[in-house]
Simulated assay, not measured.
Amino acid sequence: MSTVRKVGIVGWGAIGRVVGAALAEGRVGGAELVCVVDNRPLGEAAPARQATFEEALETCDLIVEAAGQGVVREWGERVLESGTDLLIASTGALTDEDLAKRLLAAGPGRVYFTSGAVGGLDLLQAARSLGPLDEVRLTTTKLPSTLEQPWMDEDLLARIRSATGPVVVMSGTAREVPVKFPKSTNVAASVALAVGDLDTVRVQVVADPAAHRTRHLIEASGAHGAYRFEVAHLPDPGNPATSQVVPYAVLRSLAALAGRTGQIL
């Protein structure tokens, strides 16, 4: 008889609510929602009790991070050292190589990452095993309002807000860009994790007032082949910085961790 995974969710926002509802309704076989960790009141409709982080570590064997990169930095190691497994949605935190090394070295809990809003990562990992990829480019295009950041100067903000067509907001590596856009560019970190090199992945962030769908274009090439993937997602209506598909990617990862069979891994 298989063991039911006891799940705690950190973050009761666009991702956490969808994941929590699915768990509470029994739509992920082998996984049970035990509690939710969030600093804000959950409301009467919440399907599980609100708990502190410490309480979650005492009662859960798997924590789902759905609250942002800061949670990974502050709590990631403590979760793993407690013996609890950790599923990370905010992969952008892993562009901090020191943090990534500490998480991978911590235990006895295990750390997992979800693919989030992009596909093709398994193929990039397979291609990488044949040899290094010479060039990897990611172009992310989003609505201007989702890309505004506190560090931007008035000139850049004015260009974004007055844009009538695509505007390049930032170009850099997968090491540099997710730090500047902590809620909008987790895909860059996910691609870099698949490729195995933060500096190989060149990222361009584009603001486009016509981007009613969030687009991610991945182009990669090496001695053994060339690859191109493009996805276009509807943004979550409650949080346009997040694509609607992200919580369902988390649920798919949860299903795999809970031991559901008969799916492509």
Rank of each mutant, 00 (worst) to 15 (best):
Y227S: 01
I218R: 09
Y248G: 07
Y112W: 15
L138P: 04
F113T: 04
A93V: 04
G29E: 13
E148P: 00
V136C: 09
G131P: 06
V201R: 11
A163C: 00
V245Q: 00
V34W: 14
A45Q: 09
V206W: 00
A100W: 15
T200R: 09
V4D: 08
P237N: 00
G107K: 00
P132R: 07
V201A: 12
V179I: 08
L124V: 04
P166A: 09
A255Q: 12
L138M: 11
D38W: 01
V64F: 15
G116C: 03
V250N: 02
R27H: 15
S129H: 05
Q244Y: 05
G92F: 13
N39M: 10
N39G: 12
V71M: 05
S82L: 05
A241Q: 05
V111T: 08
Q125T: 01
G238S: 08
V187P: 02
D208Y: 07
V168Q: 07
P237S: 02
G26Y: 07
T140S: 12
G16V: 06
V231Q: 14
A223E: 11
Y227C: 06
T139R: 02
A22N: 11
L99T: 06
L103I: 14
D153H: 07
Q263E: 11
V71R: 00
A210Q: 07
V36D: 03
A117P: 00
E219I: 02
L156T: 10
L265R: 13
T114C: 04
G120L: 03
V195A: 09
V111C: 02
I63W: 09
P132K: 01
V64G: 03
